[in-house]
Simulated scan of single mutants.
Amino acid sequence: MKNGLVTVFGGSGFLGKHVVRALVAKGYRVRVPMRRPHTGMDLRVIGNVGQVQLMQANLRYEKSVQRAVEGSDAVVNLVAILHEAGQQSFESVHVRGAETLAKAVAAEGITNFVHVSAIGADKDSKSDYARTKGEGENIVREYVPSADILRPSIMFGNEDGFFNRFASMAQLSPILPLIGGGKTKFQPAYVADVADAIARRVEVGASAQTYELGGPRVYSFKELLELMLDVIAKKRLLVPVPWFAANMMGFGGEMAGALPFLEPFLTRDQVKNLKNDNIVSESAQGFDELGITPETVEAIIPSYLMKYRKYGEFHQPGKDSWPEEA
């Protein structure tokens, strides 16, 4: 399907930009439906002139989704939210949005469909995020039985929302919270590796498989914060926060997130998610089956967290002439 047309919903997001690059590198034409196409002009300069096309579409409106998938050889769904805001609810995005897109894909006769979910997706989960992710998977498979489902762990990379968030907090606060004691386990995946996995599934053609994508090492939440602090050369006190207190923080985060232009630091639903490890299950297919050797956290995060050091790339920890951080 070289030079075929791949439509990528969510192509302007953190993962989406990497997916667009990976597909363009393989020679595909890429269509990126967006609610506000004028905000995605940086995507148009990826690849050759005209190789990336932007168009207006919204998963809440079936006709716009139908127009977006017309003529596509493959479709990728990356659309997701981490917290609810206004009309952007877990139900509307992860369930109804996935259903609208899957229906349109099926009606167009497209069998090459890659749906990106998340490790921990489970229709019976107590977390609304994980529950709706699980329901979305089931709906996709109902309408497009051939669809491949990819479940990444938390992703890291230049614009990630994990290491950048806590590194920013470390700039201002002498302490960082260890939610639930910091024992939750993660298996972070490099965003470019996840994008490569998606592009490879598009290239091969969907085959009704499910893949769980995690990096080469498992870390506790505490270990990830310690690693981040080491990279940015800062010493901060890591304070365990019991679950009941974390729930209170989550409620406060939701109140703050209700204000315009503010994102909650934490929500009660995220606290529920943090009670479960976010790692690849033993029996799952993953990067190995896709022929990908995933990058390590240690190899990548210094390249984009260096800006958080007091002297940036010129900082030399251990040198007497450089003052230590508190």
Rank of each mutant, 00 (worst) to 15 (best):
V95Y: 08
F166H: 07
M34L: 15
A233P: 01
Q270C: 08
A208S: 11
Q270A: 06
G252D: 00
D196H: 11
M228G: 14
R31I: 07
A118Q: 01
L213P: 02
K275T: 03
E70H: 09
F163P: 09
V140D: 02
I301Q: 03
S89M: 09
A85D: 09
K235L: 11
K272T: 01
G318R: 14
S127R: 08
Y129F: 09
P177L: 01
A195T: 07
G10M: 12
A118T: 10
G97K: 10
F9C: 06
D128A: 08
E159Q: 12
Y211V: 15
A284N: 03
A107G: 07
F162H: 07
S281K: 15
Q87F: 12
D160K: 13
W243E: 14
H94Y: 13
F9G: 10
D124L: 07
S127I: 10
Q56L: 05
Y219A: 03
E99A: 09
A106G: 04
G181E: 01
R36Q: 13
M248E: 02
R31K: 13
N77T: 10
P216K: 11
K307D: 05
S64K: 00
P260S: 13
A121C: 12
S64N: 04
E313Y: 09
I232K: 15
G97E: 00
F314S: 12
Q88A: 15
A147Y: 01
L59A: 12
A326P: 12
S168V: 02
E282F: 01
N273A: 12
F221K: 06
V45D: 14
A258Y: 11
N48Q: 14
Y211Q: 14
I154A: 06
D42G: 15
K103S: 01
R131D: 06
A199Y: 02
T210L: 13
R201I: 04
E289R: 15
T210C: 10
H315E: 02
E203N: 08
M248N: 03
E135V: 03
I301S: 05
A199C: 08
L259K: 00
G252S: 06
V6L: 09
V93Y: 04
F244N: 06
F163M: 14
F90C: 08
K222V: 11
Y219V: 06
V140G: 08
Y219L: 05
A74Q: 01
L23R: 11
G157P: 08
A192K: 11
I198P: 00
R268K: 12
K183E: 04
R44Y: 07
K123S: 15
E212A: 10
V202C: 06
S127G: 11
D196P: 04
D193Q: 12
V271H: 02
E325T: 15
P177W: 03
H115E: 07
E84K: 05
F186H: 00
